[in-house]
């Protein structure tokens, strides 16, 4: 059999192209079209153009969900990266005994199923006889705090759970990055008289930048899709104080049967994630 050298590569690419169009591009285009429909998925749809997008930004619940999602994501990413860096440095340190055991322990939270974690955090955050409130009470501060019920703090309680859960996972990436830095570079800086802090600031962190950027981008996608933890712990309440865009998408799509509206909501979320990732890539490129 003789293969046409110009055409045969397309033949080999065909399986990938089919998968790419069917499971990646097609759903994206399809949901973009859906976002311009008024449609419950069960009856004939009505084309409404950008009306769903306009409605989104006039809906108070959506604005609250958007604000919660963005602020939770920024705080989560900021603190999580610092904690992951700290853990990564700690795990890379030769003076830490039992490093392998620590590595496993730090990685464990991300492997535990969410309902189990939710139970543990309910016990920690419980208003009456919760672990945190018992500690506060032992320290002499009498008033018990409603960690999950007080709209001023409950989003941050959930963010702290997320940070605890994800830091160990991303610390492993930091650790891998640290271990890929040649020892000679560190040794050279020490020989040149740099202090420990200067070595970290001027040598290690710049070399670690691609890993840190990766951690920020990868974690930001997860951060903006905040759903499971507030859904299990608070169902988005009270008064939408822990509601997020992902929850808005789910509620409107699956509970209210507003597929077009939910698609528009999902598209805004996607746009936010893309813009956030682009900004980070541009910052990295600029440096």
């Amino acid at each position: 059999m003789v293969f046409d050298k110009k055409k045969s590569p397309y033949l080999f690419l065909l399986p990938f192209l089919i998968m790419f169009f069917s499971f990646w591009l097609w759903p994206i285009l399809q949901s973009l079209y859906w976002s311009m429909l008024e449609w419950d998925g069960l009856r004939a749809p009505t084309f409404v153009g950008f009306r769903n997008y306009i409605k989104l930004f006039s809906e108070q619940d959506y604005i609250i969900a958007l604000s919660n999602t963005v602020s939770a994501a920024i705080v989560y990413i900021g603190i999580m990266v610092i904690v992951a860096l700290f853990l990564g440095f700690m795990l890379n340190s030769s003076i830490l005994p039992g490093r392998a055991a620590f590595r496993t322990i730090i990685f464990l939270p991300v492997t535990v199923s969410l309902p189990v974690i939710a139970l543990v955090f309910f016990i920690i955050f419980a208003k009456n006889n919760g672990v945190l409130n018992n500690i506060i009470s032992t320290l002499g501060f009498g008033r018990s705090i409603d960690w999950l019920g007080d709209p001023r703090i409950n989003l941050w309680s959930i963010v702290s759970l997320r940070i605890w859960r994800a830091s160990g996972f991303y610390a492993i990436f930091i650790l891998a990055g640290l271990q890929s830095i040649p020892e000679e570079v560190i040794e050279a800086s020490i020989i040149d008289g740099a202090s420990g802090w200067k070595t970290i600031r001027l040598i290690v962190l710049p070399l670690l930048r691609p890993v840190i950027i990766y951690v920020i981008i990868a974690s930001s996608i997860w951060a903006f899709q905040l759903f499971e933890e507030p859904w299990i712990l608070t169902r988005g309440g009270p008064v939408n104080s822990t509601a997020t865009i992902a929850m808005h998408v789910y509620r409107n799509g699956f509970q209210f049967f507003q597929l077009g509206y939910a698609s528009a909501s999902a598209y805004v979320l996607t746009a936010i994630i893309v813009v956030f990732a682009l900004i980070q890539l541009l910052i990295n490129k600029g440096k």
Binding site: N128, W231, T234, R235, G236, G237, V239, Q255
Partner: peptide, 14 residues
């Protein structure tokens, strides 16, 4: 003692 359970109103079951 908890006299009774009371549920978060937000969400379906509450």
């Amino acid at each position: 003692l908890y006299i009774m359970t009371q549920y978060y109103p937000a969400g379906t079951w509450g």
